[in-house]
């Protein structure tokens, strides 16, 4: 189920865990824009950046925790993250008309 990665040494693991932690902190900072807006597009933009961050965090945690399956989850986000932006684009453009 979960393959443990080849030994990369404690330093590298730590680097990835620290990196993941900092990425999470940046994500918290991004929340300001996601909550405040002002426009819906601003929020979607912030969430889109958060989605990209999530991919990186998941990949980092995958290495840091030695759990390769986290890359699969990251793949889901990489594939589907842009959907909301596209949806919001259609949504605001047609106001639910053409959607």
């Amino acid at each position: 189920m979960s393959t443990v990665f080849p030994e990369t040494g404690d330093l590298v693991t730590d680097v990835f865990l620290v990196g993941a932690a900092l990425f999470v902190l940046l994500a918290v900072a991004l929340l300001y824009r996601a909550v405040k807006g002002p426009s819906t597009q601003d929020r979607v933009l912030a969430v889109n950046v958060l989605g990209t961050n999530t991919v990186v965090v998941l990949a980092f945690l995958g290495v840091g925790l030695g759990e390769s399956s986290l890359l699969d989850i990251a793949l889901v986000y990489a594939l589907l993250n842009f959907l909301m932006a596209v949806a919001i684009s259609k949504f605001t453009v047609e106001r639910g008309g053409v959607l």
């Binding site: 597009q41 933009l45 990489a78 842009f82 932006a85 596209v86 453009v93």
Partner: peptide
């Protein structure tokens, strides 16, 4: 995938803003 989808998302968002 990120290289493909991210610019598209940015385009979609800015297009929505422009359209609005």
């Amino acid at each position: 995938f990120i290289f493909i989808t991210n610019p598209t998302a940015a385009h979609a968002i800015s297009r929505a803003a422009d359209e609005q």
